[in-house]
Each structure stands twice: as structure tokens, then as C-alpha cells.
Amino acid sequence: MFTIGDFAHLGRVSVRMLRHYDAVGLLLPAHVDPSSGYRFYTAAQLQRLNRLVALKDLGLTLDQVRVVLDEKVSVEQLHGMLSLRRAELRQQILADESRLRRVEARLRAIEREGAMPTDEIVVKPVPAVRIARLTATAASYEPEDIGPVIQPLYQQLMERLDRAGVPITGYGIATYESTEGDAVVVHAGVTVAVDPSTASDFEVVDLPPLESAATIVHRGLMDDVDATYQGVAAWIEANGYKQKGLVREVYLNYGEGDPADWVTELQLEITKP
């Protein structure tokens, strides 16, 4: 048998927790010395301890743990529960990392308030371009709503173009349309040189030329684009322009290599009032 200290070491838990599990009847010592009150455990009890700790980490209360342990959950069932919990935790980590990036992006936008990127903005005409695209609706313009919509759209579009044998002749181009309320129509497109066809499972459209567009190059993830967009907005207003039409995001180099090296050109059509 093992003392409570040795058993805590072997089970990678605290002595305090073992005493608590004893007090609530979840893991009783194999033997308690009647004169000293010292608790002793057997190696076989590590199996119950392992299950107890695993179930706690799944988020179960101690009362729920007791029910599961008393029902003698099999190794296979426990493995399935832990695998599901692992997937949930990984998803939560990804969500937290995304939220952290958004906070950092807002902080950068705040830091750049009042600093218009005049040297970075180029006013130029943009020629018409033919694209193949897929369309879906996002709940809002918030990154956590846009990302889960546009990313699968591009994956599906690439697969459909590949099946159709349609080569990509240029860059990816995304546009967004506001609707009544918060919803946003998301168009994910890539430049192609084919005629529209009703037989295709994607749309082929011609984006019209822009007579004059305020353009700026954004570097890095689109999660961090807030400060860039807001800087252009300040420049447009300060220079007496008005924005019209849809904003275009042209992905010059996106999705491969170091995200710090990704390059997107933002194109905002402008006019004088």
C-alpha cells in the first residue's frame, strides 16, 4: 500500500484533493490506520483516480462524476468523451486566439487614430475584370462572422474551378454588399478568362471598371485590417471625396507562407460630391 503522499505523487494530484475525494465519498482509502488516522491506497485505485480526474476535466460536477463512475464507464466510452472534450478545448483556443487578434487590431486602430496614411494611398483607375465567384451571407461585418463564411467559399470555389478545368488567371477578389439590418452578402471570387455558362456550378461576372479608386496595400491577416480601412476612410473624408460602390479586396499574396508577408490591396471607389 501507499501513503496518501506517495499516492498523490503517483496520481499527480494534491493530498488536499485526495482528502476531499475521501470526504465526499468519491475515492475512499483502501485502509485507514485506526490509531493514527493515516490513509493508505493501493495501486489498483489509480484507475478510479484517473477516471475521476479525466471526468472532472471534461467539466462534470463531482456529483455527475460519481454517477458516471458508479455506472462503470468503459475505457472506450471514456476515450470518446475525452476526445470530444479535447476537440471542444481546441476550438475554444482557436476562438480565444482569434478574439485576441481582434483586440490587438482594435488597439492598433486606436493608436493610429488621427494619423492618415497619405503616403500609402494611391488614387487610380481600376480596369474591369472577369471573375468566377460564389456567394453567401454573413451575419455581420464582424471578423468572427465574415471569416467562417468567406474561407469555405474560397475552398469550394477552388474545388469547383478545378473540376471544371477552369484556370485562374489573376488574383482573388472579394466584395461585400450591405443589406437591411446587419447581414452582409459576401462574394468570393478569382480572376478567370472564361465565358459565363449556365452549366457551371459557380457564377462568372464582370466587375465594372472604377474611374477613380482610393487604393492602399494592407499587409498581414485580414483580421488586422481595421486600422487600414479606417485610415482610408479618414483620408477620403479629409480630401473632400465620397465613397461609392462596393469595396474590393484584391488578394495579391494571401494564404501561403508567413502571414506577416500576406498582401491585400483595398480598392474603394471615390467621387467628388
Rank of each mutant, 00 (worst) to 15 (best):
R90Y: 09
T228R: 08
R248H: 07
L94I: 05
A174E: 05
R19F: 08
A174C: 14
F202N: 01
P127E: 08
R219T: 05
V232N: 00
L18M: 09
G172E: 01
A105P: 05
S200M: 10
K56T: 14
R102I: 13
T61R: 09
M222N: 10
A227I: 03
V205Q: 01
L134M: 14
P259E: 08
V65D: 07
E237I: 03
D206N: 07
A128M: 10
L100H: 12
S178A: 10
V194F: 05
E269A: 13
I216A: 03
Q45I: 08
L58T: 15
G165T: 02
H9A: 08
R102N: 11
A214I: 05
V184L: 05
D22N: 15
A43G: 04
D119C: 06
A183N: 06
E88Q: 14
V232D: 04
Y171M: 11
A132R: 00
Q156D: 15
I146T: 03
A188P: 00
L210D: 01
N253T: 09
V250F: 02
G189V: 04
A23Y: 02
A233E: 06
T135F: 07
V263K: 10
V205E: 02
V32H: 06
Y154G: 03
L266D: 08
L27S: 07
A238E: 10
K244C: 05
T264Y: 14
